[in-house]
Design a protein around this nucleic acid. Sequence first.
DNA 1: ACTGAAAAATTTTTGGG
DNA 2: CCCAAAAATTTTTCAGT
Lengths: 161, 161
Amino acid sequence: MWRVEEIDRRIVTLLARDGRMSFTDLARETGLSVSAVHQRVRRLEKRGVLRGYTSLVDYDAIGLPMTAFISIKPIDPSAPDDAPERLKHLSAIEACHSVAGDESYILKVRVSSPIGLEELLQQIRAAANVSTRTTVVLSTPYEHRFPVPGEDEDAEEADKA
Amino acid sequence: MWRVEEIDRRIVTLLARDGRMSFTDLARETGLSVSAVHQRVRRLEKRGVLRGYTSLVDYDAIGLPMTAFISIKPIDPSAPDDAPERLKHLSAIEACHSVAGDESYILKVRVSSPIGLEELLQQIRAAANVSTRTTVVLSTPYEHRFPVPGEDEDAEEADKA
DNA sequence: ACTGAAAAATTTTTGGG
DNA sequence: CCCAAAAATTTTTCAGT
């Protein structure tokens, strides 16, 4: 896998901060011409570095105020593990991560109420033949931040002297 | 909190699927005029239902191929709990959720390597005076899906007869 | 790869029902 | 809250370096 270079990285960062930023603004921020950034963005899209764009939604406002993480474990460990396939019709599941550790997947889900969560858990257990462990989210101080590679280094000016 | 009505919900869903969809396309999909959808989108933004827009990034390509969930617990339970504040300067932390259960927060992080994760854990423990429990993500079958309220009901045509 | 500029399309404003 | 149309801006294409 190749390394995304400086100016492309800047474009990706800007679009992560504002997915609708115009090419005009991207050009101004990067010092390139409009057509140059345009070309770069299209290339980043084609190469899959930019996978798409989305809006950030207030889930309280649309009637899904409850978030939870559900860890799942197969009841029959010898059965083929196709849980993601079996669960993907459940639209409440925002994400599905395969993980190391005692359980096999972590799901992030959004539901309308405790009863909605209960029903979802039943559907998950039935669909994938798994046991579940649920962690309810109480609040979310922050989310959807953009991790920048090499930003958290401790001693950045060590080799200046 | 008021209820987002049908057509606004459709707009939100469309923009969740494609955050750069044009007003022209939104108008066609909703059957409204361009200015009507424009007005509605601006209102949804002002009311905070649409919180913003972002690009979906391939973290492998930008040098952050490793994802993990880190659960944290205060070492001194009597100290004031300002962990989110103390941690938010760490850009590797994509999200911070306060949760019910044995631990107090779940962090989602992106790092470049196992060593990067080790260093991040040290920084987290030092900055927030917490113990950590880490679950490494092996792969992500899906992510960033948009949960649609009322999509997972089992018996939808029960009261038709 | 980048630039500048023309052409095409979209966004935003305006005026009015 | 809705539409239609004008005005402003952006996106997209393209010839040239």
